[in-house]
Computed example of a mutant assay.
Amino acid sequence: MMNDTLKTIFNRRSVRTFKPEQIENQALDSIVSAGQYAPSGMNHQPWHFTVVQNRELLADINTLCKAVYMQWDNPALQERVKAENFSAFYHAPTLIVVSGDATSLTPQFDCALALGTMFLAAASLGIGSCWIHALQSFHDLAEGPAMMKKLQVPEGYRIFGSGAFGYSAQELPLPKPRKEGAVTILR
């Protein structure tokens, strides 16, 4: 069985090379609206979406991401950060930061599901995306609170994920084989 929704799910890939052109406002509105319609525990909808398209702010976020990556015990990532043109979000023109009310029932899962829904919405519109993990560690940095204010993250909220969005600058790769033995059906 196949329909448009399943085709989008099966064909979506993480994009790590973006064109510099900004995504259209109507597409952005659709992507963010899709995130707002994601399921959430007891329909708490604990999320807040911060859409960043300002180049100076994206550069500031990238600088802070470099600091995060240098703290992680991953020599390959630390080496990658040293590249002159390093971008934690692959030079995407749009970054969507998903924060959530830390006192809500299941904010980390709800926010992740909202971001995943936005990835699928973007793919259905021909827009590429990629999960960006580093921003979740901003609260651990001395500069973190100031950046959270710049991002207008509501008080008491925490960043649970972010995504790079833009038009892909290359062909999407074919899917890698799926892990075998990952499904058990009990009838």
Rank of each mutant, 00 (worst) to 15 (best):
L28R: 00
F18H: 04
E143K: 01
K19V: 06
L115S: 00
A38I: 09
T106F: 08
V52E: 12
K179Q: 14
A134D: 15
T94H: 01
L95I: 05
M42Y: 15
G161T: 11
Y69Q: 13
T8K: 07
R13Q: 11
L186R: 06
S137E: 13
E24H: 05
V153C: 02
P107H: 03
N25H: 04
D73F: 05
L125G: 02
G126H: 02
G181T: 06
D101T: 01
D4K: 08
I96S: 03
M1F: 13
S168A: 04
D140S: 11
L105S: 09
S30F: 10
P107N: 07
Y69D: 15
I61W: 09
T117S: 08
G161K: 02
F86Y: 15
A114H: 00
L57I: 11
C65F: 10
L125W: 05
N85Q: 11
V183M: 06
G166T: 00
D101V: 01
K82F: 15
E56S: 12
Y37K: 14
I9G: 04
T117L: 06
Y90L: 10
E155Q: 14
L120G: 03
F160Q: 02
R178K: 07
L172D: 13
T50Y: 07
L57W: 07
G116H: 07
N43E: 13
P39R: 04
I31M: 11
G128P: 06
E143F: 01
R178F: 00
K7W: 06
P75M: 04
G126I: 10
L186Q: 09
L151K: 09
D4C: 00
W72A: 12
M42V: 15
W131K: 02
P175Y: 11
Q45M: 14
L125N: 02
A83N: 11
T50R: 14
A76F: 12
M118G: 05
I127E: 02
K66I: 06
I23D: 03
Q108Y: 00
G126K: 14
A59K: 13
P175F: 14
F165W: 05
N74G: 12
G144L: 06
G156W: 01
N3I: 03
A112D: 04
G156Y: 01
R12G: 03
L186F: 15
Y90W: 05
L125Q: 06
L57R: 12
D4I: 02
Y37E: 06
I31V: 02
A146P: 09
K19P: 05
N3P: 01
P46T: 05
C65T: 13
L105M: 07
A92Y: 04
R158G: 00
D110E: 06
L95Y: 12
A27Q: 15
A146M: 10
A112W: 09
I96M: 08
R13S: 13
A83R: 09
I23K: 01
T17M: 09
E79M: 04
K19W: 05
I31D: 01
K179S: 11
K19M: 12
R187M: 00
D101L: 05
K179V: 12
L151D: 11
F119R: 12
G35Y: 14
N54V: 10
A142Q: 09
K7H: 04
Q170G: 09
L113A: 03
M70D: 12
D73H: 10
V15L: 04
L105F: 08
G100A: 10
F10C: 07
G116R: 04
V68I: 09
A76W: 12
G100D: 05
R55M: 14
Q36T: 12
V51R: 01
